[in-house]
Amino acid sequence: MIATMPISAEQLDEFADAVVSLAHRIDPRGREVPGVRRLTPGEILVLHEIATDPGSTATTVARRIGLQRSNVSATLHRLESEELVRRVPAHKFDRGIGFELTPIAHGELDQVRKYRSQRLQTAPAELLTAVVAHADVLSRLAREVSALPTS
């Protein structure tokens, strides 16, 4: 068994602050991204979740990203009216209606990712190399944190 050092609340606070700060610096919020209609950060987050798991219901998406189901449903309704998502049968273990991205949404999400990538490329290469090596761990952490019940 590998012994691990306890992680202090202060260390977790610093890590969370760094993640939030980075997210805000690369987020296209309030900026025009060429080829993309102005999407809110919430819409981008919902689109990303649907892209990651097509067929997800509003309830599933809301649970994963920590928003109220009613807010996610309203966002999905807007995205559907703009032809960015379409209704599909939900996963077999879910009841109801699931959603998937349309080709338009795939293109716009690709443009948002490209924009974020360009923002990150302004950092020193050695720093990016060190951080990118841990992208899979950060993705797993994001899934685990979203799976935790909120208080």
Rank of each mutant, 00 (worst) to 15 (best):
P34W: 14
R64E: 12
T60F: 01
S139D: 15
A3H: 09
P34T: 11
A135E: 08
S21F: 12
L101D: 07
V112D: 09
V20K: 06
R113A: 13
V20L: 14
H106S: 06
T122R: 10
T60Q: 06
S81R: 07
E126W: 05
E144L: 12
A9C: 11
P89Y: 07
E100P: 02
R37Q: 14
T57P: 04
G96L: 03
R87S: 14
N71Q: 04
I2F: 12
R113L: 11
T102L: 02
I65T: 08
G66L: 07
R29N: 13
T150W: 07
L22D: 10
A125Q: 13
E83N: 12
F99C: 05
N71C: 06
T150N: 09
A90D: 08
R116V: 08
A9H: 10
V112H: 01
P28Y: 03
V46D: 04
P149A: 15
F99V: 05
E14Y: 10
P28N: 12
L127R: 08
I97Y: 09
G107R: 02
S73V: 13
L79I: 11
A90P: 02
T102H: 05
S70L: 11
L22V: 10
A62C: 07
T57C: 00
A130H: 06
L76F: 01
T52N: 08
P103Y: 06
V137H: 04
V72K: 05
E82M: 12
V61Y: 00
V85Y: 00
R113S: 13
D13Y: 12
T102K: 01
L22A: 08
H134V: 11
R78W: 03
D94F: 02
L84T: 05
